[in-house]
Amino acid sequence: MTQTLSQPAISARPTQPVKRRFSLLRHGPRTVRWIAVVVVAVLFSFPLYWIVVTAFSSHGGVYSIPPNFVPSFHTGAFTYVVTHTGWLHYMFNTILISVTTVFLVICTSAMAGYAMAELRFKGADFFFFLVLGVMMLPTQALLIPQYAEALHLHLLDSYLIQILPFGASTFGVILFRQFFKTLPREYAEAARIVGVGHLKYIFRVALPLARPAVVTVALLTFISSWNQFQWPLIMTTSHSVQPIEVALSHYMQTYEANWRKLTSAVILALSPIVLLFLLFQRHIVAGVAGRDSGVNA
């Protein structure tokens, strides 16, 4: 067999790449580890799956032993919940509150982050520590005085009390500050020279350029706002302004032990968030873990 110059005789198969990922758990071939991965994923996904199964099982099927793992399609309970509860209204409340909160947070965090990143003024450090300090305060301990304050400000039982206290986010301020620091200072200088004011610059130049940060802050704020339970539980009493989490809590009383109806309600409450997550999973995780989350998918 002739050998061409371009094919050295030595390598019959590709050599191991020089950079090998270090593998820690090597009890056996890789398949064992992959099995473990799948098991973990299944374990974590199972309860959600179980919700769906329970909601759509037949009336008696819920109580069968051994339990049915295979979903059926009895939509009776689900349609009942959809049509007979005010879930749409609660959903509306929740969306209203969350969207408004996101909008507020982006504005306040961008403005504050910009001021801390670009402007030189006395007390910059003080404000930075002020922001850090908020993160250190234990949330549970403040609930009583926060309630008292809301009472005296006549904000109880309103949309406002569910929005305003969350209208600024320490995470948002810090994230925007970090991001704005990476913008070349000539951008702001060019704007100063042509007489463009700070606010206009923030909303026309800095924020559009900070799109990843905006997306991250928006997503995380939305999720956090959607998942609020204890706060609206304390601060509101009337159904007209309550979000869907509190509504679920009420359903537990209404549908006590009617698991099909309960889980149907749960599905309604969960779907928007799950959908959002599936769509934006990468951004959300990146926002939580920081830039180097160690994954590339």
């Binding site: 070349p184 000539e186 951008y187 200088e189 060019a190 130049v205 559009p208 350029l209």
Partner: peptide
């Protein structure tokens, strides 16, 4: 400016 400082977006 030296690096033009054009707004990329």
């Amino acid at each position: 400016f030296q690096n033009y400082a054009l707004y990329p977006h």
